[in-house]
Design a protein around this nucleic acid. Structure first.
Lengths: 151, 151
DNA sequence: GAAATTGTAACAGATGCAGTTACGTTACAG
DNA sequence: CTGTAACGTAACTGCATCTGTTACAATTTC
């Protein structure tokens, strides 16, 4: 994955986790991520479809975390916002005459499956609560960095 | 990784492995991969720098495999032609005022390291010889599909 | 009814990659 | 020694993708 949707999504979810029971607007989230509110709203659509957050329209509306941080794995986040392939396969069909070209796509497809499974195992081991626990403690901050941490 | 340099490189190395002691031209390799010879030559430069192949100029020149297929892992190939990051980090510096923005880059950088290590372990488990062994046997082909296989 | 906020469409700018053409360099063959 | 085949590399094009931006309809609160 080359896009930054994944880190943006983790960032947004972490902010939401630090403000439980609050509705955060896309403008507020955009200012902490340092991007445009529409970029955030596009992310929120995918996160909502995955059941990770909820949103509300109108004044005082915004997004809120729909699950406990310890129940949200980075794998869920990644699948929600950037379902990826590990590497690109052949863009043009290889020559079928060559014994390699005849079946290289199948073999590399199988390799890709193994690789994606390894990435899935690794990303499932890290939860949003783990991410919160690894943020630096900022005592003077307006939001306690430890809130919601369950590691 | 989104580019197809990795699959192209494995394809090329597999063809070279099936023709030991032969010099294969970039035109020949390009025809089995179904791309342009220059694309192949750019790959060959990287594979040569990594010590996986050798090349010779002039008539009857071309590329040859410099190692036994069982000694070449897909990790070596991937590092040679497409050293990658697992995912993109923040393009714009996040707000340092927010406790998340203050250290999210470090945390996600650590997550990325773990993920890359998992991918490395997985790709090191697969050698070029394994790839050759998983190609379909084509008895009528001009090149025995089992040549050089050591799995 | 006004205002705030999401949801979404449309577009601009930047980036990266595959493919292509062209040409200099090298080495073999006769 | 000359022609030819091949690598090495630079420059360019076209295409796709992504982030960021503007704009606007739909929704909800006050």
């Amino acid at each position: 994955m080359r896009s930054c949707r994944f880190v943006f999504a983790v960032h947004v979810l972490a902010v939401l986790a630090l403000r439980p029971k609050e509705f955060c607007s896309s403008s507020l989230l955009a200012s902490t991520v340092n991007t445009n509110p529409v970029v955030i709203r596009r992310l929120l659509v995918d996160l909502q479809n995955a059941g990770l957050i909820g949103t509300a329209r109108g004044p005082r509306g915004g997004a809120y975390l729909a699950k406990a941080p310890s129940e949200v794995t980075l794998w869920q986040v990644q699948q929600a916002v950037d379902p990826q392939t590990a590497f690109a396969l052949h863009p043009n069909e290889p020559s079928r005459c060559c014994p390699v070209g005849a079946s290289i796509e199948r073999v590399m497809g199988e390799v890709q499956e193994q690789l994606l499974e390894a990435m899935e195992r690794e990303l499932k081991r890290v939860t949003l609560a783990d991410v919160l626990a690894r943020l630096e403690r900022v005592p003077g901050s307006d939001s306690p960095a430890g809130a919601g941490v369950a590691s």
